[in-house]
Design a protein around this nucleic acid. Sequence first.
DNA 1: GACATCTTGAAAGTTTTCTTGCCTACTCGC
DNA 2: GCGAGTAGGCAAGAAAACTTTCAAGATGTC
Lengths: 298, 298
Amino acid sequence: MSKPLRDRLTEALQTASKADRAIANYMLSDMGGLPFETAASLASKVQVSEPTVGRFCRSIGYDGFKDLKRNLKNDMGDQPWLIGDRLRDLQERTKAGEDQLSRGLELEMAALVAVYEAAHSPAWPRTVKRLATARKVFAAGFQTERGMAQIFVNQLQYLRDDVYLLDLGGGNFAELLAMDGDDAALVIFEARRYSSHAQMLAEDAKVAGIPVILITDPYCDWGHDVSDAMFVVPTAVNLFWESTAQMASLANLLVNGVFLELGPEVEARMNKFAQLYGRFTGHVGDAVQPRTEGRRTT
Amino acid sequence: MSKPLRDRLTEALQTASKADRAIANYMLSDMGGLPFETAASLASKVQVSEPTVGRFCRSIGYDGFKDLKRNLKNDMGDQPWLIGDRLRDLQERTKAGEDQLSRGLELEMAALVAVYEAAHSPAWPRTVKRLATARKVFAAGFQTERGMAQIFVNQLQYLRDDVYLLDLGGGNFAELLAMDGDDAALVIFEARRYSSHAQMLAEDAKVAGIPVILITDPYCDWGHDVSDAMFVVPTAVNLFWESTAQMASLANLLVNGVFLELGPEVEARMNKFAQLYGRFTGHVGDAVQPRTEGRRTT
DNA sequence: GACATCTTGAAAGTTTTCTTGCCTACTCGC
DNA sequence: GCGAGTAGGCAAGAAAACTTTCAAGATGTC
C-alpha cells in the first residue's frame, strides 16, 4: 500500500519547481480526470513539455506517468480511519518491494468496497427478502467455491428452516429441480473456470421457475441470462490465482440482511441451535455436557 | 452517438457473439476500472484477442477502444469511480445514519489488514513451509467454520497430495490421530462459541506430536497452549453476529504461500487437476476443446 | 454434405505515448 | 558578471497501444 497520490502532490507543491508545481496543482484539481489524460495531453494543458510530466512523476516516486495512473486505480486516498498506524507499519515493512503482497491488500480492499456497494444495489433488498421468505433455500458451489456455499448454508440455517447445500452426490439435482412450482430460491457461488454444473444448474432452475441468485467473479458472461440477481465480486488479487475470499463477506452480508428481515424473534431459534449443538457436541467451557439438563427429573 | 455506454453494453449482451458478450459483460461488471484498461489488458482478462476488443468497440458505435474511453469520461458523469471516492461515498451513508453497514466495512478492512499482518509474522513462513512439506495435511472446522476448512482443503488440494478435510462422520478423528509418529500438520478454523471438538482435537493432536495451526477469532483463550502457530482474525463487524469472512482471505494467503514454496512446477499439477475436472464434470464452454489452464492470473 | 457467412486470432503495420540524450536558458553564489 | 548547477524544451528513439490484413475455423442454410 503506497502513500496516497494526494499526499505526494501536496508535498510537491511545497518543494518543487515552477513547472512541477503547475503539474501537481493541476493533478490535484482534477484527480478524477487523470486516467483519461496522457502525458502529452496533460503537458499541453499546463503548458509544459511532455518529458517534464514524466520527470515529475518520477520525482514523486512513481515510475513514470503510466505508473502513476496504475497506482491511482487503487489509491484509497487519505481515509483517516484507514490510514491507521498499523497499516502504516505494514507499509513500512513491505516497502522492500519484492513483496507483492501489499498490492494484494489494496486489491482485496477494493473488492471489499465492491461487496459493500453490492449491498446497496437495487437488487439487494429484493434478494434478501426472497432468502428470508422462500419456502426452501438451496445453495451450490463447485470446486473451490463449494466451501463458500457451505458457509452460506451453515449460517443461514441458524436463522431459518429449509436451507440446503446442493451437491451432486446423487448424480442429479433432483432435490431442487424436482420440486416444481414450489416456492424456492437458489444461490450459486461460482468463479472461473466455471464448472459446467453451475451453468446447467442455473439454466434448469430458471426453466423450473426458481429464482437464481448468482455470486460470481467479473468474468462470468453466462450469468445475466440465467439469473434473477447477479452479484459480482472482484477476484483479481495479484496472487498466483484469483481470490474469491471476499465472497465470504458478501455471503455474510446477505445472511445479516436476512436476520434483519426476520426480526429479533429469530434469536430464540439461534439460541436453540446453540443449545442443540451443546447437547450433541458441546462448546468449549460447557462445564458439564448439557445433556443432563434435559434429563433432569424433578 | 450519445447513448450511454451502459445501455449499449446491455444491448450487446443480447445480440452479440460469444467473445463480444464476454467483453460487454466484463465492462459492465467493472466500469470503474475501465479507464485504466487498455485494449490489450482487457483482451487478456476476458481471454480474447486484442483486435476483437477493438472490433467490439466499433460494433457498438465507437471509433475504437480509445474512443470508448474518451466518451466514458462524460458518460460516467458524476458518479464516483475512483476507489477512494467510492469508499468515501459509503462512509457518507454511515454518517447520514442510513445504515450501519458501512461501519462494518471499516471493521472488515481492519480485519483484512490484520490478516495481511499475520502474513508477515514470524510464524508465517514456518507455517507455510510445514504446509508445503508435511506428508499429510488435515484441516478441520466446526459449525459455521466448517466451510472455511472446506475451502482451504479444496484449494490446497490443487497444489499437493494428501490434504484431507477432517470430519466427525465416523465418530472419531482416527484418520489423523491414529497415524502416530507420522509427519502431518493440522489446521483448525474456529470461532466462538468454540466447538468442544476443536479444543479436544487440538489437544489430542498436540499429544500425538502433530503440529497444530490454529486460526481463530480474538477471543480464543485456549489456543496458545495447544497450537504450534496461532493466527488471529478480527471478527467484530457490527453485524448481528461476528464475521469470520476474512478467515477466507487468510486461508487464501496461506495457500498462496504454499504455492510460492513449491515453486512453479506445481503448475503441471494444477493443469492436470483442471483437466480432470473437465473430463469428469466439464467447464463452461469446454464443448469445443478443453483448455488446460488453471485459474491462474497471469 | 457443400456453400456462404460470420467470427476470431496471428502477424505485421501504423499511430500514439512515453523516455532518453542533448542542449539552452535561467538562477544563484561569489 | 562569471561559472556551477538546475530546470526544462526539442528531437530522436523506444515502447506501447491500436488497426489492418488475411486465413482458419465455426455456424448456419439449403
